[in-house]
Design a binder for these strands. Sequence first.
DNA 1: CATGAATGAGAATTCATTCAT
DNA 2: AATGAATGAATTCTCATTCAT
Lengths: 238, 238, 238, 238
Amino acid sequence: MPEGNAGKPPNPRSGVPSSLRADAARSGRPSLGGGAPAQDRELRAQGRQTVQKLLDAGLAEFDERGFQAVRVDDVVRRAKISHGTFYLYFSNKEDLFKALLSDALVDMAALTDEFPVVTRNEAGQAALRRWVNAFCDTYAAHASVIRILSQAEIVGEEVWGDGLQVMFKLSEAITQGMTAAADAAGHETPAGHAELTALALLMMIERINYLLTVEVRLPRGEMVDRLTAIIFAAFHYS
Amino acid sequence: MPEGNAGKPPNPRSGVPSSLRADAARSGRPSLGGGAPAQDRELRAQGRQTVQKLLDAGLAEFDERGFQAVRVDDVVRRAKISHGTFYLYFSNKEDLFKALLSDALVDMAALTDEFPVVTRNEAGQAALRRWVNAFCDTYAAHASVIRILSQAEIVGEEVWGDGLQVMFKLSEAITQGMTAAADAAGHETPAGHAELTALALLMMIERINYLLTVEVRLPRGEMVDRLTAIIFAAFHYS
Amino acid sequence: MPEGNAGKPPNPRSGVPSSLRADAARSGRPSLGGGAPAQDRELRAQGRQTVQKLLDAGLAEFDERGFQAVRVDDVVRRAKISHGTFYLYFSNKEDLFKALLSDALVDMAALTDEFPVVTRNEAGQAALRRWVNAFCDTYAAHASVIRILSQAEIVGEEVWGDGLQVMFKLSEAITQGMTAAADAAGHETPAGHAELTALALLMMIERINYLLTVEVRLPRGEMVDRLTAIIFAAFHYS
Amino acid sequence: MPEGNAGKPPNPRSGVPSSLRADAARSGRPSLGGGAPAQDRELRAQGRQTVQKLLDAGLAEFDERGFQAVRVDDVVRRAKISHGTFYLYFSNKEDLFKALLSDALVDMAALTDEFPVVTRNEAGQAALRRWVNAFCDTYAAHASVIRILSQAEIVGEEVWGDGLQVMFKLSEAITQGMTAAADAAGHETPAGHAELTALALLMMIERINYLLTVEVRLPRGEMVDRLTAIIFAAFHYS
DNA sequence: CATGAATGAGAATTCATTCAT
DNA sequence: AATGAATGAATTCTCATTCAT
């Protein structure tokens, strides 16, 4: 999930929707086809295949060298198509990235619905653990793009905004899942507090996953345990 | 503190020193004056002043536009010195950044020594809270550079490494401070576990501070409370 | 009518046919259907319709954006036919333009025959006025192409030459019509003089019409009166 | 003087200031230094020399090939300076052109003040003839740029506007000079009429000069005579 | 010390045109 | 007859860095 936005951000955002502010919901672009240029043409089999080649090549390149270092030329060379063809389907490198990203974001957003109601017992903790694990899986599956997304300076305002969206959604889901049982049981749950807690914990999960996909090798299994324990404790013993 | 390193890192690092692996200790260059080119010359009043102008201008530019977007030309124009003069003191943009960064890292590293022994009581939590607050202050004071540092793809390998160093040191300090009391009291503390927990929590603190300095406006006071509570709970109730 | 040929012209022309030199007469290609590629094929209904769509689209585009700015792609998109099809009927943008232009030139050339014998009286002036008006009508009807034609640098040598042809023809017609009556009456008419005068006046008419079709809004009715008066005076009182 | 503006003009202008509308007077940029980029730097001897080399090279190239065909690369090669240096002084080809143009426009505008009061006699006609001749000289001196200017489609809106300015000024000067004597003598001079007449005649002069500088070789001396006679007749016998 | 000048290797993008289906 | 796909040469512009004064 995206964070970071180095360089003073042009348009400051504020607030905490449902205190943490979830911006206006954007249309969930379904990542299929290509970017802008390709949107208004009908793609035939061959065309679709070329787009795919570009997406694949792009993903590979981004994964290997990051966003900045990749030149359109690299992607094109890897995909073995001509320079001009690239611009037939994507208006530029960022456009290609966006296409790649939207897949990732869709999957990440899907985690929202999967967040369980976490009860104050072993079963709850087990369910939570499963979710954390799922998060790690999803993150890993899209690591290269999410990694780039989290370097806000690199991607444009708009893309970064898409990421924030998902972040807030997840944050809300966590809040819900972690407090639902308590609420039912009549426990008091300081409203805003829970949401801030959820946000903090989400950031933790994300960054740890970040580290998991880059150089620092951490024992993933244990890490998941730790994360689960921390989340559990944070909501139930503070 | 740095995280992120988008684009598969050239030379993967692994391991966890004292499980978390703190890399080989690098020479702690003492942030004074300029970078490489300036190192072997003695600076007179005028020279020092020029360097200062460049550092100021650089900081301002980095703050406003991030690392990438800043061109040597921007810095030079803002500092009102000539293009050629820049290279008299710094070998390039990254060099300037490094000079700026080292100050920040020194201050961040200093937090290490300030981490208190956190006892399982109100007093402990209060002490912890004070430290978290200090962390936020320090982070805020160097926000622009740290923000950039945390976008690994942007800065070079070397710089990023400096950041990792500090991260591991802090992580260890937290582990110590949070488990010292318990250890003394004879509590069992699963070795590696505590360190992973500390790392996770550190990541959380960092990212939240990140968010605090960028567009998303969060209530800092409450956030500090939440962070404190989470850390406390994580170590004492899990 | 074309003038202008910015950029020193490759092959300089000189002389004044019958003092004003009318170049070698070019084959008067009869503006029908398409350009080069289409010339050797018989077009069926569908084909003719496609050509027409292209001509229409081309005219509209040229009118809106001039020659340069129009890309084959624009025409093709407007005509809602495919890129490849364009080259089935025209060899390139200039070819399309030529097809469009020849219609215009035919009409302009037709003005030649309509130029009246202008007598030194009210009737003569009225007849002249009518012709000037007709010129304006014809010009307006083909404004977009003629406007382009008059920017020699833009169109190729060949096209521009076609325009010069018509210019010289018109110039001669004016000379004839304006001096016929005088000659008959035994007035002396300095040979070359009249032709140069006619050319100058033609240029005047053309440029004013140019202005009439572009941004500068002039009162056409009065303008026609002025032009008529100037021509009349030029031939009869100088 | 500029005419033409093929391709529907973005922002239609209308009206006839003092009926012919002379737009807001623009600041008379004194053509010295370079274009935009050079404006905010102090140029030393070497710099000024380089700018001059670029201006010379640009003029020569424009003259030989027109505006469109010239690539920045051509200019740079001719001036024997590096590609990057060009952009140190001009932001692009058009910028270079503008620098070149302003000289021309200043000179053309100067003709305004030189237009004599043309009396209805030999002396008046002689004075007029001298002015027409001066016009031709000035035009010839700047032929290459003016030629380009008159192809509105090529140059930007702004540049073209500068040309219109001068056109209107000249038009007014002619009106003044041609009607001053008559007015003094108590002759009636239909207000608007005179201005339209002047505009028409100006267009004539310009286009003929255009032809004089391009391929069609006309006898300049005689042409000047004809133009003078026409103008004289137009104002005095119509 | 400091400066203005010059450099030139890139990188992005466009668009006319050809081709296979 | 028509189409979508692919091409790649051409051109513009940027910017880090070096140099002579």
